[in-house]
Design a protein around this nucleic acid. Sequence first.
DNA 1: TGCTATCCTATGGGATATCATGGAATTTTA
DNA 2: TAAAATTCCATGATATCCCATAGGATAGCA
Lengths: 165, 165
Amino acid sequence: MIRRFRGESLHKVDAKGRVSVPAAFRRVLEEGDPDFSRGSSPNFVIVYGGVRGDCLEGYTISSISKVDKLISKLPRFSKDREMLERFINTQSTYMQLDETGRIVLSYRLKEKIGIRDEAIFAGMGEKFQIWEPKNYQNELNALDTSFKNLSEDENPFLKLDQLQD
Amino acid sequence: MIRRFRGESLHKVDAKGRVSVPAAFRRVLEEGDPDFSRGSSPNFVIVYGGVRGDCLEGYTISSISKVDKLISKLPRFSKDREMLERFINTQSTYMQLDETGRIVLSYRLKEKIGIRDEAIFAGMGEKFQIWEPKNYQNELNALDTSFKNLSEDENPFLKLDQLQD
DNA sequence: TGCTATCCTATGGGATATCATGGAATTTTA
DNA sequence: TAAAATTCCATGATATCCCATAGGATAGCA
């Protein structure tokens, strides 16, 4: 089975910026790091810029590598490639869990998404997100409203089965 | 895992032109220098001419070799090859980190991109860039605007998924 | 089915190493 | 030999490591 990021949880951020990554997510990060071995700590990547400025997004090494590989296929110096690299490479950073399963969010990262002393982790399948709790709630509410306003044939749940073949 | 240049950071440039290269980038430079050994300092290449006159671009030895190889495939004496060699080979220079992880930017290099006493390092996957901070901000803003003005089918993120297969 | 031992998780504090940066000393070079 | 470049120390700030604790969950056992 390939594990995916599932669930949401709230964690304290201490004075040094340290936060526990949910235990369930650690298993996914371990599986997604080709260099991980029992006894060590997995690496992964946090993307902080780009399309969404309101949360951080965590990717396993293997899933970000897929993206990196696709980008490398684009012609060097092309506008598309530069743009993607700016969003995916420049505005991101390698991270490593410590032995107790924590990471440290630098001042810059915390500031970027308005985090003070608590953070919400939300599983999103191939990636996870880190939110300031209030912003997260707003995001959920907004999503709810926009979902309710969809017409029948815009409903993504229904579109899902049409993809199937 | 093959590390890539990720993240961005601001560094002071002192009177002698010395700047710290971000610690994370040093690891990539070390990995990318076939002659590197523990205890020594990695070599790499800075390209200052060519396509973009507004920033410097740093390549690991192994990634500049890839580019060199591509250029060698072009017909000798062709205009294209001549041009690329001028930009990539002529307008570039070998560099070596010192023991504290710094390089020195000569007056010429600083002048080229308008740097005075601060420099931004930006990871771009297989290479990194060095910018004068204000110019960098302008670059980011311009990128943002042009991204927002893209039509659906011009969105490089969406194109990425089409490459897949 | 209640008790206890064990493990894992979340969190905190202090010690230590690394990083970014500045200045002095020394070598090179024109 | 003066200017420029390189090497060698120095230091505060930051990040990393190491240890400690408390609560929850699980498992084994009587």
